[in-house]
């Protein structure tokens, strides 16, 4: 049986700047296969309360996109193999300038970019700048995407396709596994790219159910909740991240039967 990838999301600079690089390492130690690092944004329209709060915590420290790229550079000085994808909102990247972002992100060692509010039909200018950098531009498919849009999104994507598992914001709790399965199949017949499923996967049990039908599961809010625990020390946050990641990784191993 194929191995399902585990993708973990945290927001850069949350809850304070000097934890982020260590947190990325802690996630890798727990068994994360792909890292998603959120660019904090003042108006995160698609996020639920948990990841909104993470952005607010990070922005209290004035974390900028340049800071985020610096964190990636530092992380890459001791980890060159784990794929790292930046996720955020277009205004951060467009304000830096597409050309400048592409150059800096490539130098820092970024492997992919997900812009939550950038559909393929508006992405030409950014795509052109990313072309020669090797940075994948990853688009999202939603339960409401028509077959026609799935086809269009599949042809615009590189790296993988991110399937948003429910109608709603990140961290919501009304995930329907059979609907996810149907939709992943709908994507698979239109694309050869791997399909990662995210939004609403909070615990090892859900991760296991989704891992059967997807190439990867993305866990965000559950990990970000650990980052946001009030009064927690850096050590306890990092060990909490490793522990939950390890449980998630174990749950989605093909042979795993117990959660």
């Amino acid at each position: 049986m194929k191995r399902c990838a585990l993708t973990t999301f945290i927001t850069a600079g949350d809850p304070f700047p000097d934890i982020t690089v260590d947190a990325l390492h802690a996630l890798v130690e727990g068994g994360s296969d792909i890292l998603e690092l959120g660019i904090p944004f003042s108006d995160p329209e698609a996020e639920g309360p948990v990841i909104q709060a993470a952005s607010e915590r990070a922005l209290r420290h004035n974390i900028s996109l340049l800071d985020v790229l610096d964190m990636v550079t530092v992380f890459r000085s001791s980890n060159t193999h784990t794929p790292l994808v930046l996720m955020g909102y277009l205004n951060s990247v467009s304000t830096m300038g597409y050309e400048s972002f592409a150059r800096r992100a490539s130098e820092a060692g970024v492997d992919g970019l997900i812009m939550v509010n950038l559909p393929p039909e508006e992405a030409d200018l950014l795509r052109v700048e990313l072309l020669n950098t090797g940075i994948d531009l990853i688009f999202l498919v939603a339960p409401t995407s028509t077959d026609e849009r799935v086809k269009m999104i599949a042809s615009a994507s590189s790296g993988f396709i991110y399937y948003v598992s429910l109608k709603g914001t990140t961290g919501a709790s009304h995930l329907d596994t059979s609907s996810v399965q149907r939709n992943v199949e709908r994507i698979k017949v239109r694309s050869s790219l791997p399909v990662q499923v995210g939004f609403g996967i909070k615990d090892p049990e859900t991760a296991k159910n989704i891992s059967v039908v997807a190439d990867g599961v993305v866990v965000g809010s559950a990990l970000v909740s650990i980052m946001g625990e009030e009064g927690a020390s850096k050590e306890s946050i990092l060990s909490g991240l490793t522990e939950l990641t390890a449980k998630l990784r174990a749950a989605i191993e093909p042979e795993s039967s117990v959660v």
Partner: peptide, 22 residues
């Protein structure tokens, strides 16, 4: 046709809303 006023306007929202907007 896609809602652009010169370089402004357009549609920059999460994919979930595209079908409803269409």
């Amino acid at each position: 046709a896609r809602g652009h006023f010169g370089e402004f306007g357009g549609r920059f929202v999460a994919e979930t809303l595209f079908h409803a907007l269409d």
